[in-house]
Amino acid sequence: MSLKFGIVVFPGSNCDHDSHYVAETILGQDARLIWHKESSLGDVDAVILPGGFSYGDYLRCGALARFSPIMKDVVRFAKNGGAVFGICNGFQVLVEAGLLPGVLLRNSSLKFVCKYVHLKVENSETLFTSQCQRGEVLEIPIAHGDGNYFTDLETLKRLEDRNQIVFRYCEETGAITEEANPNGSLSNIAGIINEQGNVMGMMPHPERASDPVLRHTDGRKVFNSIVESFVRQSQLS
């Protein structure tokens, strides 16, 4: 039985095909591109909001995308416990849509940055990271101009207390340092999950590190985790 991924395509999405390729060709699952003007996700098991520049993002990243017709159904799907995974611009959209707390500001360097970074897995007990070890260091690239995660201290504390911080930028050794922080994110946050544990957003691009031809495969662990979680779930039920 394969898992049905639904990948939302906003007009300026440009990593939609990359996620599709990983889901379908690398993982051998079902994957469907869903045009943002559609009103229903249809029959899907997990939704991916891909990277890109959903509406050009001249205003604020993801600010317009949340008004796309499909987003109503994405919110409904998430509220019903469906797995929703936002990558890069998709993370920004999830934050703008209120499905995740906080906001993504301009990088502190004020420059777009594309490079491989190291991520520490802070929570391996999510449906997106079950195939990782807690404390494990993954090498996955980033590519963004607005990835500087910010929130008020109260929210930060809540995120920490409830183990909602999934990934932090770190050194190769796993040390969380200022030098390892590529964009000024509060507390080196690279990815977070909602309280219910079914909506995750991250700035790094696991779909870019999932194909052995590209010499990096750490990102596959994230996709594998989603697939495994569903296999387990379906076995249980």
Partner: peptide, 16 residues
């Protein structure tokens, strides 16, 4: 210079 360019989108660029 090149860190400011997305060199990987479309997942075809071999990064070595």
């Amino acid at each position: 210079v090149y860190d400011q360019y997305d060199s990987m989108v479309r997942t075809n660029t071999v990064p070595t």
